[in-house]
Nucleic acid binder design. Sequence first.
DNA 1: ATTGAAAGACCTTGGCG
DNA 2: CGCCAAGGTCTTTCAAT
Lengths: 157, 157
Amino acid sequence: MAAEPDFDRTDFAILRLLMKDAWLSNKQIAAAVGLAPSTCHERIKSLRARGVLRGAHAEVDLRAIGFALEAVLLVQLGKLEIDVVDNFVSATATVPEVRGVFLVSGRADLIVHVVARDMEHLKAIISEHFNRHAVVLRVETSVVFNRQQQHVMPLPL
Amino acid sequence: MAAEPDFDRTDFAILRLLMKDAWLSNKQIAAAVGLAPSTCHERIKSLRARGVLRGAHAEVDLRAIGFALEAVLLVQLGKLEIDVVDNFVSATATVPEVRGVFLVSGRADLIVHVVARDMEHLKAIISEHFNRHAVVLRVETSVVFNRQQQHVMPLPL
DNA sequence: ATTGAAAGACCTTGGCG
DNA sequence: CGCCAAGGTCTTTCAAT
């Protein structure tokens, strides 16, 4: 199903630049990787068409718009029927305050990253979207003190 | 230090659009929020200047470039001297394979999201960047089966 | 696959309601 | 604050190498 495209050094360079800053103009990228703007443009179009470049998202300071609290929920589920679990994952992902959902092995079945305005809001989210569901056995809430996120290629080369 | 700027409905609309798709042109955004392009441009500039809009990052399919494995590490630390911890968090955040680091309350002190090419690579990352450090007491590794991430405003309005 | 050139669209600023 | 208008810049396509 997945094609077998190999990427050369230039493709990686383009992806790396766009991961760091998606607002770079095509002209800037072309100059940085040593290509003509038209060539660079074709490369980027190809990467998009192949599904490697999926899009871009603005980074917004959520604290500035009133979301002062962040938490990670370690959720333990009950009966692990695949359909029920997948449905719950999908439903969880659509909650606006949820930033990410991970279905994982190990002690927790679900790891959920959420933002909230304050403690009361966080309580409401957990109560409404997690504790209310029968599939959820237990939720362990970890408040986030500090966070750092990377938007770089996971390759030194 | 932080001012208390209030955002109107239009600012939220702009931020919401850019979080979903940072490749939208200024003209498109202006049309979507019902402003002239020049006015919309001024709004966006202001949001950037105020630090609300921090940048944009391309979304790359990491599996397409050879990173087939994803994991969440629940890291327990030893002596919680603030300097030591902060330094370790910063050091961890600079590891290329690390996507995010969360310093949290609860059972785990650190929650780390990593990508890897395969199991051996994951083993190497944990061994080199976590188990080797004296501050790390224990690492519990959760392999990610499924993941969904949201790039939307955490506001229904 | 890469390039340069051309046309068109867009961004960006300044002046005005 | 918001809009219009104008200049300058960039994107985007295409024929050629």
